[in-house]
Measured scan of single mutants.
Amino acid sequence: DVEPGKFYKGVVTRIEKYGASINLNEQVRGLLRPRDMISLRLENLNVGDEIIVQAIDVRPEKREIDFKYIP
């Protein structure tokens, strides 16, 4: 289970102007929005990149997770 405040290694699977889709595994994925990137710009991400993200909002009833990137 993903817990708010914990850090996870994820893989960038899609990049859109509203954010990047991050997969932690086949069943768990979430969104990294541009506003939640401290020192990383969306255009510097590539599909397949592995990054460390922090879960900031977990809504299991909607199967949604928001991530934050902290270098």
Rank of each mutant, 00 (worst) to 15 (best):
E61I: 07
E50Y: 14
Q54N: 01
K62A: 12
K9W: 13
I56H: 06
V53N: 00
I15S: 01
I51E: 00
N25W: 11
R14C: 09
Y69S: 03
Y18Q: 10
D66N: 11
Q27I: 12
F67N: 03
K68V: 07
F7H: 05
V11E: 03
V2D: 01
R35Q: 13
L24K: 00
E43Y: 09
E64C: 11
N25Y: 07
G10K: 00
R35C: 10
R59V: 05
V12Q: 00
E61Q: 09
L42E: 01
Y8M: 01
V53C: 07
K9N: 05
V53T: 00
L42A: 02
S21K: 09
V58Q: 03
N23Q: 15
V58P: 03
I52V: 11
V47G: 00
E61S: 11
D1Y: 14
E43H: 10
E61K: 09
N46Q: 13
V12N: 00
G30Q: 03
D57M: 14
V12H: 00
D36W: 09
L32Q: 02
V53H: 01
F7W: 11
R14M: 10
Y18L: 08
Y18I: 12
K6C: 12
I65V: 11
D49L: 05
A20E: 02
K9C: 14
E3V: 15
D66Y: 15
N25A: 09
Q54K: 08
G19W: 14
K17E: 12
E64F: 11
A55M: 10
R14H: 11
G5I: 02
D36A: 05
K62F: 11
G5E: 04
D1L: 14
Q54A: 05
K62W: 09
Y18D: 12
P71H: 09
R59N: 10
Q54E: 05
I65Y: 09
P71Q: 07
R29L: 10
Y8I: 01
S39I: 09
P60S: 09
R63T: 09
D36Y: 07
L31S: 03
R63W: 11
G30W: 05
R63Y: 12
L32M: 04
D1R: 13
L40Q: 05
R14N: 09
V2L: 10
L45V: 06
L42Q: 02
L24W: 04
E26C: 13
R59P: 03
V11L: 09
V11Y: 12
E61T: 10
R59I: 05
N46G: 08
V47R: 02
G10M: 05
A55D: 00
N25K: 06
E26F: 12
E61Y: 09
I15K: 02
P34S: 08
I52P: 01
Q27N: 15
Y8C: 11
E61M: 08
P4R: 12
D49T: 05
Y18S: 10
E64G: 09
R35H: 12
I38T: 11
R33A: 06
Y8K: 00
A20Q: 01
G19Y: 11
L31K: 06
V58H: 05
I52S: 06
N23I: 12
P71S: 09
D36H: 13
F7C: 12
N46W: 09
D1P: 12
R59S: 07
R35A: 14
Y8W: 02
K17R: 13
I51F: 03
I52E: 05
F7A: 04
K17D: 12
D49Y: 06
E50S: 13
R63H: 13
I15W: 02
I22Q: 01
A20S: 03
S39W: 13
E26K: 13
R41Q: 10
L42K: 03
G30T: 01
S39C: 15
G48R: 01
E3F: 12
R14A: 13
Q27K: 13
L24M: 04
G48W: 04
E3K: 14
K62Y: 09
K62M: 12
L40F: 06
R41D: 08
M37G: 03
S39E: 14
Y8S: 00
A20T: 03
L31P: 03
D66K: 12
G19C: 08
D57H: 14
L45E: 00
L24G: 01
D1I: 14
V53R: 00
K6F: 07
D36P: 07
E16C: 13
K9L: 12
V12Y: 15
N46L: 11
V11S: 03
D57L: 12
F67C: 06
V11F: 08
L24C: 08
T13G: 06
L32V: 02
E50H: 15
N25E: 05
R29V: 15
P34K: 08
E3S: 10
K9F: 08
N23H: 14
M37L: 06
P34T: 08
Q54I: 12
P4A: 13
D66T: 13
M37F: 04
A55C: 15
N25Q: 06
I51N: 00
E26M: 11
V28E: 04
V12C: 04
L24E: 01
N44Q: 14
L31M: 14
V11C: 08
V2N: 01
A20L: 07
F7N: 05
V2A: 04
K6M: 09
E50C: 14
E64H: 10
V53Y: 00
R63A: 13
I70K: 05
E3P: 15
A20R: 01
A55L: 07
T13M: 09
G19V: 05
K6R: 13
G48Q: 03
N23W: 15
F67G: 01
A55I: 14
E26D: 14
V47K: 02
D57C: 14
K9V: 12
K68P: 03
F7I: 06
S39Y: 13
V53A: 01
R33E: 03
D57Y: 14
I70C: 12
E16D: 15
T13D: 06
G10H: 00
R59H: 08
P4M: 13
R63E: 11
R29W: 15
Y69K: 01
P34G: 07
I70D: 13
S21Q: 15
Q27W: 15
Q54D: 00
I70V: 13
V58G: 04
S21T: 15
E43R: 08
D57I: 12
G30C: 11
R14Q: 12
M37K: 02
V47H: 01
R35S: 12
V58I: 10
I15H: 01
G48N: 05
K17C: 13
F7L: 07
I52D: 02
V47I: 13
G5P: 05
D66I: 14
K62N: 10
D1S: 14
R14K: 13
E16P: 01
I56M: 11
R59C: 07
L24V: 10
Y69V: 04
I15R: 01
Q54W: 11
L31D: 03
V2H: 04
E16T: 15
G10C: 10
P71R: 08
I52G: 00
S21I: 15
V2C: 08
K6D: 02
V58N: 06
R35W: 09
F67R: 02
R33Y: 04
I51M: 02
R41S: 12
I15G: 00
E50G: 07
R63N: 15
I15T: 03
E16N: 15
F7R: 05
P4I: 15
P71T: 07
R63C: 13
G5F: 08
P34D: 07
V58D: 04
G19A: 08
I56Q: 05
N44E: 15
T13H: 08
D57Q: 14
N44T: 09
E64K: 06
I70H: 08
Q54C: 12
V47A: 01
D49F: 06
Y18G: 09
G10D: 01
A55Y: 07
V2Q: 02
I38D: 10
P71G: 13
